[in-house]
Design a protein around this nucleic acid. Structure first.
Lengths: 220, 220
DNA sequence: CAGCCGTCTGTGACCATATCACAAAGAGGG
DNA sequence: CCCTCTTTGTGATATGGTCACAGACGGCTG
């Protein structure tokens, strides 16, 4: 036990028996990818289960017509089960994962994954919990897209994405992709928010000035 | 080995070793529910994995505002993994499963499920494949809701739901729920289809008369 | 610095869908 | 046959998405 193991960063894994942790450590590799790299997708089918150590991965889907929507993000300390199982078991769907920052992840080969799910109840629980989380994420997306109002959704997303201080660096098009809507819709809604002094916009940046009101809109 | 076992109805399970099949048979119960019964949801959290032997279960989600959308159906020969994992692992989301016909299912208790995922690679694969299928279903729903045109979606759904001959018994409101849209939208679109002689409508029923054209619209 | 170019944003017109408020038309029970 | 409930039809209006551009900004290059 030399290193402060990365395993302990994962809530569901910290209490694994030492033997299992050992297997996990020895049979997995820590990989790095630069910001912007495709983690999985049409061009890169993963054959490892990825446990994200640092950074975030944005998972999105593109329609035939070329419009795109962000489905969810995988943050440090979470695993990328969905995508793995999904892409392994079925024909590749038009979902892709892209590194939103430089990332570091532990890659667990299929064989090891298999062995661990067989040997450890806790590892199994970890995996199933990860599935459950993603599935509820997808449920939420469906609810929002099908029934949510745009002003509410935009306000929500801005609050999520905004750094604790300073402006959020993002284009209207990128915000539109977040919500699966059109750029013009975002531009107009931002203009409306700006008119009400809830935020100020610049080229490629948005700065929230009245987070309270925005929060009220977001939860309406 | 007395009975022609229900296990063999499940593609992914037919080739399980005899011992595992045995466990599965002995430790599971075949349950029946009448048409319309709630299989899971706010009022009924399942603690079994259900393998559907006969009938279909419709899984839908209701928004705060009361609007509802059908997410997918579980058909005979499929399992209900999503819902189980989802509801066990997280706070109950507003998803519910309802028996669309009288149903019969094999109920596998959590403990048995756990033991089987530990002991059998094939059973694990079965479970993961079931997850993958549902997840791609959800991806599809998101794509359709976010980017699909209503005429296309309605045509698709009508073709899916229509019996091989005779009229489809369904109200406009039920069709609206299928698509997560409003009843008026369905009424108007059906009227338009009827005007083009693609189908004829009666109170509580729709009969397709030009499936070819409808198919063309559905895949546009 | 001027001019150029690619990206980003603004805008008006128009279409599709959702919402709201009712009216009217079956269907079934008393 | 009337009453009532469910289902369907319809017009007006609001919201969101599409299309076609125009203009504005930033960076680069001559």
């Amino acid at each position: 036990m030399i290193t402060t193991n990365w395993i302990d960063r994962f809530e569901g894994l910290a209490r694994l028996p030492a033997g299992i942790k050992d297997t996990l450590t020895r049979q997995s590799a820590v990989v790095s990818l630069p910001k912007g790299a495709e983690v999985f997708g049409p061009g890169a089918v993963p054959d490892n289960l990825l446990l994200l150590l640092d950074g975030t991965v944005r998972v999105s889907q593109t329609s035939q017509s070329g419009r795109e929507i962000v489905l969810y993000r995988v943050e440090a300390g979470q695993s990328c089960v969905l995508t793995t199982a999904c892409l392994l078991a079925h024909e590749a769907y038009a979902a892709e994962g892209r590194a939103e920052t430089d990332i570091r992840a532990a890659a667990i080969p299929r064989a090891t994954f298999d062995r661990l799910t067989a040997e450890s109840t806790q590892f199994r629980d970890f995996v199933f919990a990860a599935y459950a989380r993603r599935i509820t994420d997808l449920f939420r997306v469906i609810d929002e897209v099908a029934f949510g109002k745009i002003d509410m959704r935009l306000a929500q997303r801005l609050l999520e994405l905004a750094p604790s201080r300073g402006p959020l660096k993002i284009t209207h098009q990128q915000l539109a992709t977040e919500l699966g809507t059109a750029r013009e819709v975002v531009s107009r809604q931002l203009a409306e928010f700006a008119r009400r002094d809830l935020l100020s916009v610049g080229r490629g940046s948005v700065e929230i000035t009245d987070a309270d009101t925005l929060r009220r809109i977001a939860s309406a």
